[in-house]
Amino acid sequence: MFYVIWVKSQKEHEFKAKFEKKIDASLYSRLLLITRIEKQKHRETYIEKERLMFPGYLFIETDCPDEVHEILNSQPEYIKILGNDGQFLPLTKREEDFINRITGHTERVDMSLGIIDGGVVKVLSGPLSGFEQYIVKVDRHKRKAYLEMELFGEAKKIVAGLEIVAKS
């Protein structure tokens, strides 16, 4: 099951490296710090930049959440495993499927390609394919899509790379 570890923003990479050194790899199968690819204009061209998709969040796939939590309690950078009333709640099946689909079982969300047809966004390829209903805004110049959906028990705004190749 996937669980979410909430850490201090801008310390995610540092915390992940410490986590991997201190915690026995047999306690978890995957530790994800999910990033997204976005294109940023630099002079006359666009360059790809990698940014955190969920700043302050690490995703851990484990069957031993209590053991992991006990070890994490000794870490000063650690804030908490997201849960309810002291119990650690795994991501819902829907949330886990979303994470797996948009990352392709990796740690990275690539750019998507789409069109706008009659004011409706249609994703032609990429990780946002099938998630058009969650897109609330598209910034064609910055090549970004803004999604709004429920994750971790609350409404979240998510930014992902989306290049619109045609508009009619």
Rank of each mutant, 00 (worst) to 15 (best):
F2I: 01
Y3R: 10
W6N: 13
W6E: 14
V7K: 01
K11P: 02
K11V: 04
H13L: 10
H13T: 13
H13Q: 15
E14M: 14
F15K: 01
F15T: 02
E20N: 09
K22Y: 08
I23P: 07
D24S: 10
D24N: 14
D24L: 03
L27S: 03
R30N: 10
L33A: 07
T35C: 04
R36G: 04
R36W: 02
I37E: 12
Q40T: 11
R43G: 11
Y46W: 05
I47N: 11
I47H: 08
E50K: 13
R51W: 09
L52A: 09
F54R: 03
G56Y: 00
F59Q: 01
D63L: 11
C64T: 15
P65K: 02
D66G: 14
I71C: 10
Q75R: 15
I81T: 06
I81V: 09
L82A: 06
N84F: 10
N84G: 12
G86I: 13
Q87P: 05
T92Q: 08
T92D: 04
T92Y: 01
T92H: 06
K93G: 07
R94A: 08
E95S: 05
E96C: 08
D97T: 09
F98C: 03
I99L: 14
I99Q: 02
H105L: 13
H105R: 14
M111P: 01
L113F: 05
G114K: 04
D117L: 13
G118R: 13
V121F: 01
V121Y: 03
K122R: 13
S125D: 10
S125Q: 12
G126K: 05
S129L: 15
G130H: 04
G130A: 01
V136Q: 14
R140Q: 13
K142S: 07
K142F: 06
R143C: 03
A145P: 00
L147G: 05
L147T: 00
E148T: 09
E148I: 07
E150K: 12
G153W: 07
A155K: 14
A155D: 08
K156N: 08
K156W: 08
V159C: 11
A160I: 03
L162P: 03
L162W: 07
E163F: 09
E163A: 15
I164G: 02
V165A: 04
A166F: 07
